[in-house]
Design a protein around this nucleic acid. Structure first.
Length: 451
DNA sequence: TCTGGGGTCCTAGGACCC
DNA sequence: TCTGGGGTCCTAGGACCC
């Protein structure tokens, strides 16, 4: 298919990142359930309507969902419960411990409703999905994308009781941004499209960098120091400045804000590359025996998930750490990875290795509050053949470009990652084949070429 | 003249997402 | 006093192999 060819073509000198040839022809919708966990609770108890409600994390430690009424009281997302206890009691906020079985079930109902609306859907998280809306409004006989999106929204609400917001745009990052604005704007009615929108610049201007999908706290701080405070400024920023602060991810985000799609819809569910089962203990755990018991039960959970996805673990990691809120000099953490002689998913065997790892790291520490276990799957490894160069007199840069041509021709898919590694007093080039999504940049090649 | 070059695996940390 | 859990990807350096 021509689309596959376009997405795998390697970087062309002079541009910062590779962008697929059809990057401007997409139409994504991001459907996001409003206050999802709270909305689930409200479905099952209509008396909660218009009441302030919050849902707490495991161990009732943090607030992980808030109704609009609770948000209005200033209750923060991801904040520890005890900080807001007073506000919550004073305002008769209803408090729920999380019920992930219920949320998982409601999520499947929402997702299957959405799947019935369009042929292509990517379930992005428990409460979000990307849809490919290209051409859909005509198939279903609607006059516009927005009209179609409003119909989807009404269907989900009617069939599941869950209110959703819809953002529509040419890239995933812009669809996220549109969704964000749809949630904030009263008059949007929960649907906002930035496709061919005269308000694009204004929408970007209104969005602070921290609210951009892919920009977290660390990058936001760096961008603000550069004077880049909103999405429009990031879109129009100098690429090399963005690259040096945020790496290739930053370049992709900036490209997506320009309307060049770098992230495609992923509609196949890949097996997990690692499985983590970990828990904070309610109280301090200090003996090896207690930790062994905890680790054994975590391994059981992880091994079951492993068998569910029909994988086998090649290694198992165990980690322990004290509360992250202790003073620096009281903190301790340690971890180890045990390699299995043969990949497996037998609980007993995995517990055996996990315990061996735990004993190893326990000797070095003194007090632990958290313990967990992680399984790493065997990941197939892709290889690039060497012996690409026959003429040793060619300049390095020239040879690298030859390599790119060669691999383009040979592999058909996949892209190269280049890095320079100091070795003796000279530079060494490294190239690894990675999955097709990753791209290289001219900057890196230039460093190698000029050294 | 010009220190070799290509490649794998591992570790560890950082950043981001929900 | 009380601060979640499960993920992905990227970067960089080092050891080691032929």
């Amino acid at each position: 298919m021509s689309k596959a060819d376009a997405t795998t073509r390697l970087h062309i000198p002079g541009t910062e990142i590779e962008v697929p040839a059809d990057a401007t022809s997409h139409c994504f919708a991001l459907i996001d359930c409003n206050n999802f966990y709270v909305s689930c609770e409200k479905v099952f108890d209509p008396a909660l309507r218009d009441k302030p409600v919050v849902v707490l994390s495991n161990n009732d430690g943090c607030i992980v969902a808030r109704s609009n009424e609770a948000k209005a009281l200033g209750v923060g997302m991801g904040e520890p419960y005890f900080k807001y206890k007073e506000t919550i009691e004073k305002n008769h906020v209803r408090v729920f411990s999380s019920n992930y079985t219920l949320y998982g079930d409601m999520s499947s109902r929402v997702m299957s409703t959405l799947a019935g609306c369009t042929p292509q859907i990517e379930v992005y998280s428990i409460d979000e999905a990307f849809l490919n809306l290209a051409g859909c409004e005509h198939i279903h006989g609607y006059g516009s994308l927005e009209e179609f999106a409003r119909a989807i929204r009404a269907t989900v609400l009617q069939w599941t009781g869950i209110p959703v917001s819809v953002g529509i745009a040419g890239t995933k990052t812009l669809a996220k941004l549109a969704n964000h604005l749809a949630k904030k704007s009263e008059k949007s009615g929960g649907v906002l499209s930035l496709v061919d929108s005269p308000y694009m610049d204004r929408a970007l201007e209104k969005t602070p960098v921290i609210d951009i999908w892919g920009v977290g706290r660390a990058s936001a701080e760096k961008l603000i120091k550069l004077g880049i405070t909103n999405a429009k400024m990031l879109r129009d920023a100098d690429s090399s400045a963005v690259k040096s602060r945020m790496g290739v991810c930053g370049l992709r985000t900036a490209a997506e804000l320009k309307g060049l799609s770098c992230y495609d819809l992923v509609d196949e569910i890949e097996p997990r590359k690692g499985i983590i089962s970990s828990r904070s203990f309610g109280n301090r755990v200090e003996t090896l025996e207690a930790l062994e018991q905890a680790v054994a039960s975590f391994v059981c959970i992880a091994a079951e998930k492993l068998r569910d996805q029909k994988s086998a673990a090649g290694s198992i990691s165990v980690f322990i750490h004290t509360s992250p809120f202790l003073r620096a000099d009281r903190k301790y953490s340690n971890s180890t990875t045990m390699h299995l002689p043969q990949a497996g998913n037998d609980t007993g065997e995995l517990i055996h290795y996990a315990h061996a790892g735990l004993r190893k790291i326990f000797r070095e520490g003194y007090r632990y509050q958290k313990a967990g276990v992680r399984l790493d799957n065997i990941v197939p490894c892709q290889t690039v053949q060497a012996n690409l160069f026959d003429s040793p007199n060619r300049s390095r840069r020239d040879r690298l470009l030859k390599t790119i041509d060669y691999l383009n021709a040979q592999m058909g898919s996949g892209t190269l990652k280049y890095a320079a590694q100091g070795h003796s007093q000279t530079w060494r080039t490294k190239c690894e084949l990675r999955s097709p999504r990753y791209t290289t940049s001219w900057d890196e090649l230039a460093v190698v070429g000029s050294s």
